[in-house]
Computed example of a mutant assay.
Amino acid sequence: MRLFWRVFWLNTLVGTVATVLLMVGPWTVSVPIRLTEALVLAAGLAAMLVTNAALLRWGLGPLEQLIRLMETVDLLRPGQRLAVTGSAEVATLIETFNEMLERLEAERGASTARVLLAQEDERRHIARELHDEIGQSLTALLLDLKRLTGQAPAELREELRLAQETTRESLEEVRRIARRLRPDVLEDLGLGSALAALVAQFDAHTVLRVERNLHPDLPPLDADVELVLYRIAQESLTNAARHSGAASVELSLSPADDCGGVLLLVEDDGKGLGHVPEGAGIRGMRERALLVGGTLTLGAAPSGGTRVALRVPGRGRGPEGLP
């Protein structure tokens, strides 16, 4: 039944019932109207309006559900759909909205994959330039300073040694940045070694005390899944170091189920998420998780801090990841 006729017949039903009650009931209206008659008419009108409102709410209820879903839908949390109920027009509207969500999620996934692929390519390019150009230049400068230190007068050697130390620290910083941009250990030694190196790096260069628990029997993972796990672990540790005020962080990676999935957990003892809205870093983590069919959840850790959990299905159970 079309929405127009549905509302029309609901109102007709209410009016008909009210008319029949007036016809068969003992009520009459005097001229001038009496107080009791006015009260009866007012009560009848109120009852009719309440009944009409209840029937309209029932008839238009699916539209209100659709509006609430449209206000809360987030493409980074896929799978939100509304049951197809109501009149023909309402059902068609809900079906169209659900189909639109499916298309938007697919298009968002494809565009995000292209963006993140370009981002990884750019990171590799920058890391290569840092290592090959700036790194080599700093190495040559360090060797020249070392040679000049041996030839310089005694009163200048201490200053040259300080210059050597500054150059050496700059070279190490460039190499550290290059490793963050392009985790060669991930490609060469695998995810476990890459996460161990990442934890050691944060342990050495931040005030965080990082503990790692990597299960020895992890299922085989595709290269794009390993990259997503590494990047989300990296971003989670970075957020903990910059924003949480935590003193310690625990990173764990273990099998998630019997079908080849894995579960990554990063928990800190900081101040927690509070009511701060999600920033670009967290939304980027959600986008990466979607590429491999993973589910990312953020909440409170048992210690009161923040808990980041990424559950990734096994091979062949999620959408395609990075191209």
Rank of each mutant, 00 (worst) to 15 (best):
L66V: 01
D121T: 12
G318M: 05
L273K: 13
M1F: 05
D74K: 03
G316L: 08
A106G: 00
T51N: 07
C259S: 14
T12R: 06
T85S: 09
T92R: 15
L82R: 01
A140C: 03
L45S: 10
V210N: 03
P255D: 04
V73D: 03
R180H: 14
T28E: 05
Q119L: 11
R57S: 07
P62C: 03
V228E: 11
P313C: 09
R161D: 13
A127T: 02
E187I: 01
P319S: 07
G299H: 12
C259N: 11
D268N: 09
G61P: 00
L198W: 05
E89I: 02
L117P: 00
L218N: 13
L22A: 15
W27L: 13
P302I: 05
V199Y: 04
R288Y: 07
G318D: 06
T16L: 15
I177K: 06
T238F: 13
A88T: 08
E37G: 07
G316Y: 06
L237W: 14
G305A: 09
V14G: 02
L227Y: 13
E173Q: 13
S254V: 13
R147E: 15
R231F: 07
A300T: 15
G299N: 10
L291T: 04
F4T: 11
V207R: 13
G304P: 14
P183M: 13
R286Q: 14
E287P: 02
A106M: 04
G299P: 14
A47N: 08
T19L: 15
